[in-house]
Design a protein around this nucleic acid. Structure first.
Length: 565
RNA sequence: CGGGGUGUAGCGCAGUCCGGUUAGCGCACCUGGUUUGGGACCAGGGGGCCGGGGGUUCGAAUCCCUCCACCCCGACCA
């Protein structure tokens, strides 16, 4: 492809709206252009990369027996009503205004299940893996970070159909391996974490994450291989335990202590002997929760312990109503009303503790959780902090932001039951099909690659994703016809040898061409200039390392073949 | 949806407080010439409903009201 005829509008300046490297570079290198908030056009260069990603995904999906579908983006709303997801999706789902009854599909579980119901009637018809690579529509409340969170985006989603939970395990495992292969092939450093399945329903799920400050998820990871979403992450911190002194309970005045830090400072109490109290309303019933010192309550863990997502912190009036005191003076002793009390594992059977007296301005010391309280249940309720020991190795955990690239779930029978997708087993008995669901954000793969592979000059593509194999640059062609002739000859030879080449034949100054080439970031640059050509030579440059060498024209093909070997 | 910010040429911005020439600068673009191995130079030129609407005023990019768009933080999020 001659660059003079190729639409790749590069930008010298960084657009003001872009704040993260991948977004800035995708705009500057002429890969995409925004159309509206969260909506992007892929320009020819960007589309080439996107197709590379798609083909890698397609190959891996096919290799585990996946069969590719083309499914409608326009869906009848009835089918979504049958699974209750019109309500669950809420404003995220786009509704067609001038055609009642049609919605834009935000995902495709329903449609896949619909077709499975029609035709997958026997245990002999399974297992199946069905997938699609298509545009999804989600009315995101806040599109951001370029293509990382858009209102329309391409997703590869796959669905497995099985007759047994063991079969589902196998399908799930196949996807797990395929996903690792996909991201490795793309050259992306990633990790996977166990996750909660959220609105998707189902049981086990794992997310494939890329560490990035631009990420929207938070994970705790260690070099030993531990990785977990902060919602479920744990550490190897030891319980505060018991002290030898077993003194009687003692109330003391703490008029100016509203926080744990106040207590520590004013009364010289060690932080780990302070028990912090939090009151939450779970389905509108009060729960008193004890945490160590300044630990942070993890609402996700609380939700799963209490078995409801409907939790909120209690307000002052409720605190006084149920405990007798306001913030800062709540504790396990002398509660005004009998309410459920749970505590974090780290406080299990602790004594010598300080906590509120349920009377404003007073605390108790020497509290023995065994002797003085009626705490029945201890759970992991706290949010892990950076630096705590890894549960596997004991080394310090890192808490990082991460971008979710892919998610695999064991869906189970949620959709097959809702839509009546049943099959007959070998004994003629009817069962719901057991399903899995497996997604990858295609644009995210592209953006994450760029986040991980760029320098101050621009993008650095590598072989699997690069839009062209080589950037052939003719220096000052108008003045030196022999340069143009040589470059055209090399171009023809490379194309004949099967390489995709972008040939910069534009009448631009060398500086502009070099900087554009580094910005666009093709892995292999071939520079044809009068200087070297006099000796029958050209220069090649490795974009990644910046290494250059002067070689003879005749060895260009061998050189590039070596480079891509 | 809450908080903050920004809308002036294709891009990046100044001008807005404190109203007053023909709205400016850099890059990009067009013409001619000189240049040419890391974003050249000279000369000439084109391009603006100053986000939209309404108001105040002799006069509005500038003041007031209102709507819209975009970005950031939060909420939310397979």
């Amino acid at each position: 492809m001659k660059q003079s005829e190729f639409f790749v509008p590069t930008l010298k300046e960084t657009p003001a709206d872009a704040t993260i490297p991948s977004h800035q570079l995708m705009l500057r290198a002429g890969l995409v252009r925004p159309l509206a908030s969260g909506i992007f056009s892929f320009l020819p260069m960007g589309f080439r990369v996107l197709n590379k990603v798609i083909n890698i995904i397609r190959d891996e999906m096919n290799s585990i027996g996946g069969q590719e579908f083309l499914l409608p983006a326009l869906n009848p709303i009835e089918i979504w009503e049958q699974t209750g997801r019109v309500e669950a999706m809420g404003d995220v789902m786009f509704h067609i205004k001038n055609r009642e009854g049609l919605v834009l599909a935000p995902t495709h579980e329903e449609i896949i299940t619909y077709h499975a119901r029609q035709h997958v009637k026997s245990y002999r018809d399974m297992p199946q893996i069905w997938y699609q690579i298509q545009t999804k529509f989600r009315n995101e409340p806040r599109p951001k970070s370029g293509v990382l969170r858009g209102r329309q985006f391409i997703m590869k989603d796959a669905y497995s159909l099985d007759t047994s939970w063991e079969g589902l395990d196998l399908s799930y495992e196949k996807h797990y391996e395929a996903y690792k292969a996909i991201f490795n092939k793309c050259g992306i450093k990633f990790f996977d974490v166990g996750a909660s399945s959220g609105a998707m329903g189902g049981s086990k799920s794992q997310e494939f994450m890329v560490e990035s400050d631009s990420g929207e998820d938070t994970c705790a990871i260690s070099d030993a291989g531990y990785a977990a979403n902060i919602e479920v992450a744990t550490s190897n911190l030891q319980p505060v335990g018991r002290i030898d002194q077993d003194l009687p309970l003692e109330k003391f005045a703490t008029p100016n202590a509203k926080t744990i830090d106040d207590l520590i400072e004013q009364y010289n109490i060690p932080e780990h002997r302070c028990a912090k109290s939090v009151v939450y309303m779970a389905d509108e019933s009060p729960v008193l929760i004890f945490m160590r010192g300044n630990d942070e309550l993890n609402e996700s863990k609380l939700q799963s312990v209490l078995g409801t997502a409907n939790v909120r912190a209690a307000v002052s009036e409720e605190l006084i109503q149920f405990t007798g005191a306001d913030h800062g003076s709540i504790g396990p002793i002398n509660l005004k009303s009998k309410i459920k009390i749970i505590a974090d594992n780290l406080l299990k059977d602790a004594n010598g503790m300080v906590s509120g007296a349920n009377e404003d301005g007073f605390h108790y010391k020497n509290i023995d959780f065994v002797r003085d309280t009626s705490i029945s249940d201890y759970h992991d309720l706290r949010t892990v902090q950076a630096g705590e020991p890894c549960p596997i190795s004991g080394q310090a955990l890192r808490v990082v932001k991460a971008i979710e690239l892919g998610h695999i779930f064991k869906l189970g029978t949620k959709y097959s039951v809702a839509l009546g997708a049943n099959y007959l087993d070998s004994e003629g008995k009817e069962h719901p099909i057991i399903m899995g669901s497996y997604g990858i954000g295609v644009e995210r793969v592209m953006a994450c690659y760029i986040e991980q592979h760029h320098d101050e000059k621009g993008i650095i593509w590598s072989s699997p994703l690069t839009p062209f194999h080589a950037h052939l640059i003719g220096i000052n062609e108008p003045k030196f016809p022999e340069v143009k002739a040589a470059a055209e000859g090399i171009y023809a030879d490379l194309v004949k040898a099967g390489f995709d080449v972008l040939y910069d034949d534009r009448d631009e100054s060398p500086g502009i061409k070099f900087n554009d080439a580094d910005l666009i970031g093709l892995p292999f640059q071939i520079i044809v200039g009068n200087k070297n050509l006099k000796d029958g030579n050209i220069e090649v440059k490795d974009r990644q390392t910046g290494d250059r060498k002067v070689i003879s024209i005749s060895s260009v093909i061998t050189e590039i073949q070596e480079f891509y070997k």
